[in-house]
């Protein structure tokens, strides 16, 4: 009986120590995740963004109206039970356009970010890893793009292409914004290059590909993720801005930006706040929550920066 007791007690003790060890043992990623979850604002940002995405995905379930179908008998109607936010200058349902518009805004923001990320990582990694001539060439191209004002460059390209599709639009944003990310990644690479673990990877005979993707990139993940997130917010703003001045995604495709462009008319600005206020607020809330997420990620990856 006593022996039994002893055995169980020893067993339970072993178990607890094992459990403690399990609790303490966290991968660097898990530790970052935990720090992120402590940031309330960032978590709220995630929740809001998830809601936005759900709204975009399930738009057809939330409204029965077609966002592109115009009805000239219903131009600039006030809100009613049928059209919660009224209709726009072409008689399209504003609420449907708001829901479907989130698709375009989020898709443009996300894909432009991915595209830029790809460009930025490839060029930044090449410049930072190889240095010398490769570095000089890439950085001079980056300087060139930097030197041109973004809107002028973007407007020029848009003026040249025949029809602005989402793909073209995203490409334009990506080729005009990659230098930012490229410089950040190059900078991190230059710092990391002096670390002994890079020399250690070289000393075992690892090839460039492995050194870049197994050693450099994971250690640059913090700045990459943070900048990618913040960039997505910028992309959404850019899309809205371009659409607002009529140089973005063309009508009748609904986007938040070209919904606000309706407000260019003083009459609508004054008499129909329901037409431009909701898309404006949606842009604000989305961009704000993405920025909160970005801040949260920065604190999570680099606990030394930031106040808390």
């Amino acid at each position: 009986m006593t022996k039994n007791n002893e055995e169980t007690s020893v067993e339970s003790e072993a178990k607890t120590s094992q459990e403690i060890e399990d609790e303490e043992r966290k991968t660097p990623f898990q530790m970052s995740f935990q720090r992120f979850m402590k940031n309330k604002l960032a978590v709220v940002g995630v929740v809001v963004l998830v809601l936005m995405v759900l709204m975009a995905v399930f738009a057809p379930l939330l409204t029965s109206h077609d966002p592109t179908k115009s009805d000239l008998m219903l131009v600039e109607n006030k809100p009613s039970a049928e059209h919660i936010l009224g209709t726009d200058g072409s008689g399209r349902d504003n609420f449907a356009r708001l829901l479907y518009g989130s698709r375009i805004s989020l898709i443009v923001g996300f894909s432009a970010m991915l595209f830029t990320l790809f460009f930025g990582i490839v060029t930044g990694a090449a410049a930072g890893y190889y240095g010398g001539k490769v570095d000089a060439i890439i950085m001079r191209i980056a300087d060139l793009i930097y030197a041109l004002p973004f809107f002028v460059l973007a407007l020029t390209i848009i003026a040249i292409v025949e029809e602005v599709t989402i793909g073209i639009f995203v490409t334009i944003i990506a080729i005009t914004t990659w230098p930012n990310l490229s410089r950040i990644i190059r900078g991190s690479f230059l710092t990391l290059r002096e670390q002994e673990f890079i020399l250690s990877a070289q000393s075992i005979g690892a090839n460039d590909f492995r050194i870049i993707f197994k050693h450099f990139i994971p250690n640059t993940m913090g700045p990459i993720v943070v900048n990618a997130t913040l960039m997505m917010a910028t992309m959404i703003i850019i899309e809205s801005g371009m659409s607002f001045i009529g140089m973005g995604i063309p009508q009748p495709t609904p986007t938040w930006g070209n919904m606000i462009s309706e407000a260019q008319s003083i009459r609508i600005l004054r008499d129909h706040p329901e037409a431009w206020l909701p898309p404006g607020l949606f842009i604000l809330v989305t961009v704000l929550s993405i920025n909160f997420i970005g801040d949260g990620l920065r604190d999570a990856f680099d606990p030394k920066s930031g106040d808390n």
Partner: peptide
């Protein structure tokens, strides 16, 4: 290597 803190990739 000399420095056991910088000679190991902390992400591995």
């Amino acid at each position: 290597f000399q420095d056991p803190f910088s000679s190991l990739n902390t992400k591995m």
